[in-house]
Amino acid sequence: MSTLASVTGPGAARLHTLLWSAAAVWCGAILLAPIAGLDSIYAFFSTICHQMTERSWHLGGEPLAVCIRCTAIYFGALAALAVRLAPRTWLLRLALGAMGVEFIAARLWIDWEVTRALSGLLLGLAAAGFVERGLREMLDRRRTVPSGRVLENAP
């Protein structure tokens, strides 16, 4: 499997570690909510997920902080960052298409946990590499002055 290692510089390695750590904290919070019974975490994630109990996985009898589809997306992204999965445009298009089909199908005839989980996982896996690369490009670009030179004191 191809990786991003061949195009990473020293700054990129730091960014990768930072991004992976942030993703780990985010996913950890999703698991911590039911384990520790932290309502503040549920409240935070309630703004970005419907949190329907019947559409969520449970841990110790309590639902996770987000639904199955969201959980799969975030953990897919975390896995992709962990193995440094290279971004592939065709995979991202496939993942978005699959999620679109699954989303419509779930409202019409097939609404299975496994299809929601798989479509979310695929999207997370496909998107993470692009997010990392986009973030890196943006930060590199912001550090570059109009003359094209990189600022020496840039972090």
């Binding site: 191809s2 991003l4 195009v7 703004t47 970005i48 290279a86 971004p87 592939r88 445009t89 065709w90 991202l92 298009r93 978005l96 998107a127 590499g129 692009f130 997010v131 690369r133 986009g134 973030l135 943006m138």
Partner: peptide
Amino acid sequence: ILFSLFAMVGGILFAAIAGNKGADKTG
């Protein structure tokens, strides 16, 4: 904070699927 984070992801994914020709080659 939240909108910037998710809108950034939206902007990146649009640029990626809209045909960022160099995206796969440098990976």
